[in-house]
Nucleic acid binder design. Structure first.
Lengths: 201, 201
DNA sequence: ATATTTATATACTAAATGGTATATTTACAT
DNA sequence: ATGTAAATATACCATTTAGTATATAAATAT
């Protein structure tokens, strides 16, 4: 009934925000309860009072990290006028995963979660899979809208294009992070730009 | 001096071969010493008699997994006559990471190691980075040779093409593994095929 | 065959793990 | 201001962690 959050709600949010970057850097297995208590300054009692277990913290942390990206992308897309520009937002946002800006510590949480959890943690894997699915659909819808508006061709292989853009971006993030060479992502994003430009009618 | 391996050498090899798929599925942090002793049927004394620590087992396991892929690719490339076919080997081998065949359990070890280790384990990260670098160079050399032979155009952006092919393949593997949908990799590999076909003179 | 090196097993750390029961403190409605 | 409920801390649990010292067994060179 209140607009103000309860103490517990605020603590829960504080735990999520504090641990989200830790999970994204160290992974689910690599992050321990003591990492969580140390980073938050809270005790186990406090953590387990707000979360069922470590996994629930990790799931909430993923949602938080994913939410940050989703929000940034949605806002940026809204600012673009052409569909070509809207599509390029994905490349530009993921561009900022590297180098100075680094607006999410540890890189893309979808990639990190997908690769760690695919064979080991069904709930986390499910969240990453949903994020991918929603991203795929968003790209396909943008291309469809662009085609309907006349900006894009009408015979585009929607799914292949969407999945290829995602694969390029995530693969590029992986490449640049593992080689510590930001230019590797730049190169791959050039290909993304070319693919998007080729959609034009 | 012997052609036959010593008992320790054989045990070491046995440990590597037995644990390599475990590390590739569960990751470095997710794999415990008891996973290793249980899978091998050996005791800790035996493991630590042949390896300095868990990390050294993981590093050897990565080399082993990587060696399997490298060997398969090298042999297949040797069988191809055209450079276009040679380049397509990468896509075809990684195609078999999914579905029935699954010749390496857990997917691509380069991707798995890169994503887990990039921010946390320098030695493992280094091995993954070297693998990427060698892969990039191999693709660039194939394109160069294809251009020299007249099969490919001469104005190809070598590095961008090589990195984009790698990003597509690794991103595609991630997509299909996280969604449990093998068709997602197929779609992305179609784009790889298109890129390679566009290299032709 | 035996001495000696090499490899493996046993039994053990100390520390860290995720998790819990209970005590204490804090927030908040009355 | 106070009683009560909610939130947090304390102290603990059993288990598992990576790793080690030492004993035993097996391989190998002589």
């Amino acid at each position: 009934m209140d607009k103000k959050l309860s103490k517990a709600q605020r603590t829960r949010q504080f735990i999520i925000e504090t641990t989200a970057p830790i999970f994204n850097v160290k992974g689910y297995e690599g992050t321990s309860m003591s990492d969580i208590t140390e980073a938050t300054g809270l005790t186990k009692g406090s953590i387990y009072g707000n979360f069922e277990n470590k996994e629930e913290v990790a799931l909430a942390a993923f949602d938080h990290n994913y939410g940050i990206i989703k929000k940034a992308i949605t806002e940026e897309i809204a600012r673009c006028r052409s569909y070509q520009e809207k599509l390029m937002v994905y490349a530009n946002v993921y561009h900022s995963f590297n180098g100075h800006s680094e607006f999410i510590k540890g890189g893309c949480p979808i990639l990190n979660t997908a690769v760690e959890a695919d064979d080991t943690n069904p709930p986390l894997r499910g969240k990453a899979a949903s994020a991918i699915q929603s991203w795929r659909n968003a790209i396909m819808n943008l291309i469809k809208a662009g085609a309907a508006s006349g900006e894009f061709k009408s015979d585009i292989d929607l799914e292949r294009t969407a999945l290829s853009v995602i694969a390029l971006i995530e693969g590029g993030v992986m490449l640049s992070k593992v080689t510590h060479n930001h230019a590797n992502l730049d190169q791959v994003l050039k290909t993304v730009a070319i693919i998007i430009n080729e959609l034009k009618a």
